[in-house]
Amino acid sequence: MLKRPELEVKALAQALMEAKLQVGHCSVCFHLSADPVCEICRAVNRENQTICVVADSRDVIALEKTREYRGKYHVLGGLISPMDGIGPEQLNISSLVHRVSKEDIHEAILAISPSIEGDTTTLYVGQLLKPFTKVTRIAFGLPMGGDLEYADEVTLARALEGRRELD
């Protein structure tokens, strides 16, 4: 940082300050946004009938990089963890249920990392959404380029659990 030109550092400092002051949460999906409603929610060329539910804004950014997904998002803002005093009330769950029940949603994809807390959150949210729409969860398995032989037992077991018929 000390070796960089002064102007560059100034610009960076300003960008950091602006981010701190301007970035808040989208009022619809709770993704990070400088505007009241984020770009993804405003986009007209995205599918309105699919919602991908994630724990954190970082997950939205990761999924966007794939350019595979064209639907909308909902950021829960964490995972259920009674030990840390986080119950469903502390997360953006009721707003999600509201969205799914009021809008014309055909599928809710739960994209939450596999962990004890992640699985609990997935099961909980899944139960609440099931009366209104089709609920799916992303598959967990072997990384691309990963060799079956070198995969650890836990990942392999997960991958076996989530196997699909060859089409």
Binding site: S81, P82, M83, G87, P88, I116, T120, L123, Y124, Q127
Partner: peptide, 30 residues
């Protein structure tokens, strides 16, 4: 799971809601 479930049971009180029951059922399964 045990620690999380115990934490939830400690929060159990007079004003326990339906959400509490739903959560507990999920921890039971895990």
């Amino acid at each position: 799971v045990l620690k999380q479930r115990n934490a939830l049971l400690r929060q159990w009180g007079e004003n326990s809601t339906a959400s509490h029951t739903t959560q507990l059922a999920i921890w039971d399964a895990q």
